[in-house]
Nucleic acid binder design. Structure first.
Lengths: 262, 262
DNA sequence: AGCCGACTTCCGCTGCGTGGAAGTCCAGGT
DNA sequence: ACCTGGACTTCCACGCAGCGGAAGTCGGCT
């Protein structure tokens, strides 16, 4: 039925790779895309020549480094991560918790940085990981600062419940998002996995638009989440200022020596 | 002239983005690829729908987050980085220098991790950055442990000189590479940029193949590079063991408590 | 030896993609 | 106000690039 354009075929091949399928053989790719073996073979080879796929000793294909290289050119992946990283390191030294930097993509958050602490709860968030906005601290912050229409669009979509705590009721979410906008911070408990709490605040860029969110995750029942808010907001303001956010610039004098120009 | 397949056209569009061209308008893409505006327009839109490109308020296109997400699925980008990161953090705490994790791709090294220290020399290496093997510490380590044919292939290619110190003479390089194999460490001075020195050692994976290299860069004339070798080899061995390298496993007992299983 | 599955290569027909052309929109100049 | 040029968007008919069937190769397992 649906006939694909050849650009779509190329993308479909890349799309069959995911965290559960890091390495696939030619015929697996063929089966998953539904393309004939000969078509798959030709396209896969073109992708391999370019470096988008690479072939290993066992004959299986994986995503190639050329894609990794390209991905870092995404403004949210490269520049944002690059400016945020020193601030995130400081935050990690101060808190010894897992730190995430998330940006919006579709109805999801993508983590463009994920610093794992060694001795804390394992969280399922890796660099490049994608999670629904309504189920993560960073996602809720981003959603709270999105346009009205976008929020309603997300609230109207299928809201998957990962734990019994996951907020899936549109009215409860509307209320929560209003709180986040008012207080400037999202604090959630066991939304995505049990026994984990997350605290997240927005990061602003040019024209004070919210472009990302920093979040911290800790085991439930550890230090009061509220005690982490000052450290988080300091980090977020530092990053916002480095990104040129007007509202953060007012505080420039106070923190100027932390990040001298350049 | 050379007729392109449509897969190649798609890839060519992605390929026009680089560190100097993070955001391009439709007609810039059209000019750079040499495709007609209508062809470019159609392909760019297909890429945008899929998430490979994204379009911004000013009408320009950038690489999309979907590509970043995909890139982390590359085994060298995702798994390797993920296992190496805690060790690299430890190394950075101990040395306060710039740390790089490089893997081979073609004749180049690609940095799959780059931890910048705040107070040291700026180095031009970012996550996802690509540099010629013969001009970087990590690259020389990787080259030294490559197959004979590959080494000769690289030595026979155009070896660009970035500074007056850059090793470009094939015979000098052969000699240097032999030293690296013997000593297990590459120490270079001002190869890529002036007043910077780099120390790098190999990381081994399954079957003891060299799969990556850790490197450290410091201002020239700081602490003797040799004093850093123990810290680097410890880091490299830790990562190698975590990757399942047989030679590193012998030392498992000694360092077991640093990284309890999982 | 024979079978099966995975991969590779070849080639003729066809339907997708190409590029020209026409149309829209906006900014800047006269 | 009108024109001009540049950037972008849409449409369509033609031609050839790419699709998929089929045949061939390789290697592993019974």
């Amino acid at each position: 039925m649906t006939v694909l354009t050849s650009a779509q075929r190329v993308l479909a091949i890349l799309g069959v790779f995911d965290t559960e399928n890091l390495a696939l053989s030619l015929s697996e790719i063929s089966r998953r895309t539904g393309f004939t073996l000969s078509t798959t073979h030709r396209l896969v080879n073109e992708l391999r020549c370019w470096g988008a796929l690479s072939r290993h000793a066992d004959g299986k294909y994986t995503i190639g480094l050329r894609i990794l290289e390209l991905g870092t050119l995404a403004p949210q992946g490269g520049q944002l991560r690059e400016t945020a990283l020193p601030f995130l390191h400081d935050l990690q030294h101060a808190t010894h918790a897992n730190i995430h930097l998330g940006v919006p993509e579709g109805h999801d958050v993508i983590y463009v940085e994920s610093l794992r602490a060694r001795d804390t709860v394992p969280v399922p968030s890796r660099l490049g990981g994608r999670w629904p906005m309504h189920a993560t601290g960073t996602g809720l912050v981003l959603l709270a600062h999105s346009s009205q229409e976008f929020q309603e669009e997300v609230l109207a979509s299928e809201l998957c419940a990962y734990t019994v705590n996951t907020l899936t009721d549109p009215d409860a979410l509307r209320h929560f998002l209003a709180e986040v906008r008012k207080s400037g911070v999202a604090i959630v408990e066991s939304q995505l996995t049990y026994d984990v709490m997350a605290v997240a605040v927005p990061i602003r860029g040019a024209r004070d638009r919210v472009v990302a969110a920093v979040g911290i995750t800790l085991p439930s029942g550890s230090a009061s989440p509220h005690s982490l808010v000052p450290a988080l907001t300091t980090t977020a303001r530092g990053i916002s200022r480095a990104l040129g956010a007007p509202s953060a610039a007012h505080f420039a004098a106070r923190e100027a020596r932390r990040a001298p120009n350049r």
